[in-house]
Amino acid sequence: MAAENLIEVKGLKINFGKTEAVKGVDFCVGEDDSVAIVGESGSGKSVSAMSLARLLPPPPICQVSGSVKYKGEDVYGMSAARLRKLRGGEIAYIFQEPSTSLNPVFTVGSQIAEAVRLHFPEEKNVRKRVVKALEEVGIRNPEQRYDSYPHELSGGMQQRVMIAMALSCAPKLLVADEPTTALDVTIQKQIIELLCRVRESRGMSILLITHNFGIISQLCRRVIVMFRGEIVERGLCSEVLKNPQHPYTKALMDCIPRLNDKSRKLRPIDYDKLK
């Protein structure tokens, strides 16, 4: 583990009213690191990720306690201006549903340009930079695609645009919240390969939120398994996937359908056993 951590989370608790979404978790993401948080719906993985850039709704709706530090700086003590710099400029997010993450009334190029202007106001040739970003994520004819509206692109292209938007501000950490769930399998593979490639070429860190074990091993070095707002297992990807320790991790991996074993029935998670 690198000495300098990008993100350090200690004792993070997130409550929505009386519902405890996250019950005290600790984790960290280093420089040039790749971590996956795995868990089922409602395990608190997405809210944990959102809390890193203080993106959860303000107190009466949602209470966050514990500490979240970005390069040693307390995220929850930051001024609004500092926070806007952090969001996008240092921690960028991509979401599950690319088609709803793009504003339908503007061209994709102008939306990426907006992000560039926010974080690099001194940049003179914004268009060139946007075209370069589109090229980096493997969009053909980036010059023409600049002037396309979101509905003119396919789902995979839209997700590439979202990644280009996130990358255009040169973030240190990319949080990918189920980036492939809305896409079909072949596009999934392309997007994961794209994320791998940009991670390596930029030396950026990735925090991947997913419930899909299939994509973890390709992209991530470490994995954190969350269940009911707690971390139940963590370790190197290769080890956890080969030899899961916690019964929940085992159960979760048992849910993955296998192609070569026809006799095996799909096993749902038996929650009573886990209690």
């Binding site: 806007r84 969001r87 996008g88 960028a92 997010y93 549903e97 993450s101 793009l102 504003n103 938007m165």
Partner: peptide, 26 residues
């Protein structure tokens, strides 16, 4: 409540920026 508003917030867009660039045009 649409997601591109969230996405703009995540990019560090200010409240007024979100209002004029994302909410009003839609």
């Amino acid at each position: 409540s649409r997601q591109f508003v969230e996405a703009a917030k995540v990019l560090g867009q200010s409240r007024t920026g979100i209002l004029f660039r994302h909410i009003l045009p839609n």
